[in-house]
Amino acid sequence: MGKHVLLVEDEINIIEAIRFLLSREGWQVDTHSDGATAVDTILAMRPDLVILDYMLPGKSGLDILTEVRADPDFAKMPVLMLTARGQSRDREQAEKAGVSRFMTKPFSNTEVMTAVRDLVQLAQ
């Protein structure tokens, strides 16, 4: 394993939880909590996977995803999106924008880890 994950999230407690879960399995975890600069960070880091929160200060996860997908190099990069909003419309829009997996908060730790492994494996 030992893959590189970028976590874009603004809630510190959630960052703490996800970082713990991934680090334990040997993932390299970087975090970013500002929506406005998230796109640049993603493009610069080129992680193996992005975990993206939907509601972020500065720019929404949906917009970030759309911009990232606009770059051909990132068309196939696995993106796992998490949302606390609970609107079905959000899922549709995210899928349209090219999300790899869409999960609703609160999530089960096992589900998240399974999803992360699957996505990275699929991308290889």
Binding site: E11, N13, I14, E16, A17, I18, F20, L21, R24, M55, A84, R85, G86, Q87, T104, K105, P106, F107, S108, N109, T110
Partner: peptide, 26 residues
């Protein structure tokens, strides 16, 4: 408003669930 309430309720719930699972399973 609904989205907002959902977000405000689900966010602390997420941390609670995640950490309680960690405490239980680890």
């Amino acid at each position: 408003f609904l989205s907002q309430i959902s977000h405000e309720l689900r966010t602390p719930m997420t941390s609670i669930r995640s950490f309680s699972e960690i405490l239980r399973d680890t």
